[in-house]
Computed example of a mutant assay.
Amino acid sequence: MTDAIDINIPIRGDMLHWGRRPTYEMVEQIADGYPSDVSRWLIGAHTGTHVDAPSHFVPGAASVDQISLESVVGPTRVLDLRDVVEEITAEDLEAAGAAGAERVLFRTRNSTDALTRSEKSETWVGLGPTGAQWLVDHGVRFAGNDYMTIEAPANTEEWPTHVILCTAGVVILENADLAAVEPGDYLMVCQPVPFEGREAAPAPTVLLPLR
């Protein structure tokens, strides 16, 4: 029996997505006389629960295969930000108890609202520039949220939060399902698929309660 909490969202054709929807084809099928089922998927690097590497917004920065294990594996704090309407600020992070954490996940209203839809929501909760700078100034190396972008809705023209975090080498996790996760401290194991030289990749992630 394990206490591990799976915070990944399933990949399927009708899921919430950027750009093209994921698609797959069956290359071989037992039903057609083959010894096994074999499928081929066409998905974007930012599909499902995924990591943005610093190179996503900073040319020459670390790509997803160059992210250190120390950034994606270790103690992680889940912050309760369900009262935030749209943009997480520095003040919100301080009030939620982010101080002292190296890795943080934001549990917002997204997990039971925007994340559950198959189409992009009109509004969602994201991290604002003041919040992003607070994380950098306090030595946070990993930040994740429960929607397909960590950026707040009002900032998706210039993407300041991504620029601030990526410039500082902070790894970003997006599309984490935190609906069943209580705020508190956990051991996180996040393993991005090591697409060589690329800016992002699916990243299966689990949390283990710290005892």
Rank of each mutant, 00 (worst) to 15 (best):
T161W: 10
G144R: 02
V163I: 14
C166G: 12
W159V: 12
L165T: 06
V140W: 00
V170Y: 01
E122P: 04
R141K: 15
A143N: 01
P129I: 08
E122M: 14
T156H: 13
W159R: 14
W124T: 03
V136H: 03
P129N: 09
I150A: 06
G144L: 03
T156P: 14
G131E: 06
E122R: 13
W134E: 01
I164R: 05
K120Q: 10
C166P: 15
T161H: 11
Q133W: 03
E122C: 07
A143M: 02
L165V: 10
Y147M: 02
S121G: 12
D137G: 07
Q133N: 09
T161I: 09
I150S: 00
G169S: 13
E158V: 13
L135G: 00
P160H: 12
V163H: 15
T123A: 14
G128I: 07
T130K: 08
V171Q: 09
A154T: 07
H162D: 13
G139Y: 07
A168D: 12
K120G: 06
A132R: 00
S121F: 09
N155R: 11
N145C: 15
E122T: 14
S121A: 15
T149V: 11
M148K: 03
A152K: 01
V170C: 06
A143I: 02
I172A: 07
N155L: 11
K120I: 07
G128A: 04
A152V: 00
F142I: 10
V140R: 00
T130I: 03
I150V: 11
I164H: 04
H162K: 11
T156M: 15
A168S: 14
T123E: 11
I164C: 08
I172C: 10
V170I: 10
L135V: 00
T161F: 11
L127C: 07
N155S: 10
A152Q: 02
T130G: 02
E158W: 09
W159A: 12
P153I: 06
V163L: 14
Y147D: 01
R141M: 12
V136T: 01
V125K: 06
